[in-house]
């Protein structure tokens, strides 16, 4: 369960956050949601696929880390063995919440930073402090705030990104059939990827539109990321 509190010096003066990566910190993830704004970095380490959010049926992009639920092949003795860590992993245990400007009315809200006090990273003994002894926000907290702002922008950008992909029929469903060295087989369904045939049929106006919105680069990054699949399979083959 989550227990989100709005971050304040008075409440969280002694709170610390562990920055190591481990399954005990909830990092055993088969995939991590990602955003076109970080596709360039993501594709250097992870295959990017599109999935449908279960509750609302909307598409989101994800960096693949394993081949079954709970399997993260990048985790290695307290380390996340990759040169780039997805934003959605780095943001933990923080989240942007909305707070009413006037407590009596919910009409106008401001984004505020909140922390999940039940998150296994939250500690009062080890890890990075949120506030200095004097009650000033630490560099760690400042960075977290910058990151959350970036995620907020990335989120908005992403919504239009998938909408535009659908508008040009640029997504197609894909089933991944993988055979590992030990003979075991895995079939991953419900995955979607960029439809390259459709992409290469696009003409001037459509391409200009994609480029202007900043979508052309992430589209090609997603295509390039496909070659990371081989590396991920290799991680599974060499335990």
């Amino acid at each position: 369960m989550s227990n989100f509190q709005i971050v304040s010096a008075s409440k969280h003066g002694q709170t610390r956050v562990v920055t190591a990566q481990d399954s005990s910190y909830g990092d055993s993830l088969m995939y991590v949601p990602t955003f076109p704004l970080e596709f360039r970095d993501i594709q250097s380490c992870y295959p990017i696929f599109f999935l449908k959010e279960v509750e609302l049926g909307q598409f989101f992009a994800a960096a693949l880390c394993g081949f079954e639920p709970g399997e993260n092949l990048f985790l290695n003795n307290g380390n996340w063995d990759a040169s780039y860590l997805p934003m959605m992993i780095r943001r933990q245990p923080f989240l942007i919440a909305r707070q009413a400007v006037d407590p009596k009315s919910a009409d106008e809200t401001l984004p505020v930073i909140s922390i999940d006090m039940d998150h296994p990273r939250v500690s009062d003994k080890e890890g990075e402090r949120l506030f200095s002894e004097e009650g000033k926000p630490s560099d760690f907290l400042q960075e977290a705030i910058q990151l959350l702002k970036k995620i907020h922008r990335a989120h908005q950008h992403n919504e239009n990104f998938t909408k535009t992909l659908l508008q040009y029929d640029l997504l197609e469903s894909l089933t991944l059939d993988i055979t590992f060295n030990n003979g075991s087989k895995k079939s991953l369904t419900d995955f979607y990827t960029i439809n390259e045939t459709k992409l290469y049929e696009l003409e001037g106006q459509a391409l200009a539109h994609l480029n202007k919105e900043g979508y052309l680069q992430p589209i090609f990054m997603a295509i390039a990321s496909f070659s990371r699949l081989r590396a991920l399979i290799d991680r599974k083959n060499t335990p």
Binding site: L56, G57, Q58, Y192
Partner: peptide, 11 residues
């Protein structure tokens, strides 16, 4: 209710 808000995807 969900379809009224979010729609179904074509694919």
């Amino acid at each position: 209710n969900k379809i009224n808000t979010f729609g179904l995807q074509k694919i």
